[in-house]
Amino acid sequence: MATLLKTENLTRRLEDEAIPVTLVRQANVEVREGEYVAIKGPSGSGKSSLLYLLGLLDRPTSGKIYFRDQDISNFSQNKLAQLRLEQMGFVFQFHFLLPEFTSLENVMIPMRKLGNLSDKEIKIAATERLAELGLADHINKLPSQLSGGQRQRVAIARALANNPKLILADEPTGNLDTVSSENVQEILQNLVKTHGCSVVVVTHDPEFAQRCDRTITIVDGAIVEEE
């Protein structure tokens, strides 16, 4: 399988703090297309920090990132934003939905931003995405009218909005009850098959990690194990 995302000696330090902190040190990560990768490690080990770097939300202090063999380490913020819009989707631990917008609108916003489809097509596509995740009855509800599990599914639907190549999830089940958690895990696993995208998921849950093709373990900001 072709390489989707690759990092070389990726390091992120917070220099401004009273005591400089190294969040991620010398990380070499490779994510291939259609791969399902878990990142695990103790609390405070730098899992989220690594994920933000992979998701181009944060910039490394040193090291390089390649997206499909293209060095994007020096891309401008605007170019990175465009790359995120077209190629990536995020799911966070606390369902980060826009509270003023309905489920449908939340899913439609990235599509409208990309602007590849007409308004009508966008509406149909967004409805389909939500239906796929069992939310057909909830498309016109506001996030505050949904349960935690439902919100997380809306967040996944939104992450999938523009058919991204890479889904990055930071403890997507961390806040859910067992049933909802199971449900979300299944959905993510299916994404790899049904949508052909790669998924990188940060989790504490060993069972969750078990479902993945590969697990990266990180301690103190450094990758200690890959299996």
Partner: peptide, 16 residues
């Protein structure tokens, strides 16, 4: 702030 962070992570540039 939160919504701004979400929008940015979705791919909205600072100018938007």
């Amino acid at each position: 702030h939160r919504d701004i962070a979400i929008l940015k992570s979705m791919g909205f540039p600072a100018s938007d």
